[in-house]
């Protein structure tokens, strides 16, 4: 099969495929997909290994540890699948390569700095809103939750509010 890194699925067909994956997840698991919850558990696991006595003193970390091993959760297994699926998609499309994605005039070091900073903001935000674009906007949105729709519209609003100030990253 021909590999063309700049060729993507028709977005509407991709959307139907994603919707069907989500629907199957709802039917089998009783809840939808997620992402940030698993990333958080990775952090809890790291803290519990590096500073176990400290972990016990932070309620939001101790609560996860009470339920057993922090990585023994279905969301963590789902994210292992996401990584496998991502690798398969990237290799078969010719998009797998070690690089920094950015505009041509922006330095890699600054781009990495923005990526880390944006990640910190999102990690905080996803805990506050009890889920991210996957668990809250996509899954809760499909389940017609009022809070998930309020979250989703707020994500778009927040993005548009700052986009102008960050435009040099991408040009």
């Amino acid at each position: 099969m021909e590999r063309n890194p700049s060729k993507f699925w028709n977005p509407y067909a991709g959307g139907v495929a994603l919707g069907l994956v989500l629907l199957v997840t709802f039917l089998l698991m009783g809840k939808g997909l997620g992402a940030s919850g698993a990333t958080y558990r990775l952090g809890v696991w790291a803290v519990s290994g590096l500073a176990p006595s400290h972990a016990e003193r932070v309620p939001a970390i101790a609560a996860v540890l009470e339920d057993g091993h922090p990585l023994d959760d279905w969301l963590v297994f789902e994210v292992v699948g996401v990584l496998i699926g991502g690798v398969l998609g990237a290799i078969t499309s010719g998009r797998f390569s070690r690089e920094v994605l950015k505009g041509p005039t922006f330095s890699s070091a600054r781009r990495i700095g923005f990526a880390i900073a944006g990640g910190v903001v999102m990690g905080f935000a996803a805990k506050l809103s009890r889920g991210c674009t996957s668990g809250q906007a996509l899954s809760g949105g499909a389940a017609m939750s009022v809070g998930s729709w309020a979250f989703m519209l707020s994500v778009f609003a927040g993005g548009y509010a700052v986009a102008y100030f960050l435009r040099r990253q991408w040009r």
Partner: peptide, 8 residues
């Protein structure tokens, strides 16, 4: 959280 996540 949504506003912050959008900015991030």
């Amino acid at each position: 959280g949504g506003l912050l996540l959008g900015a991030g």
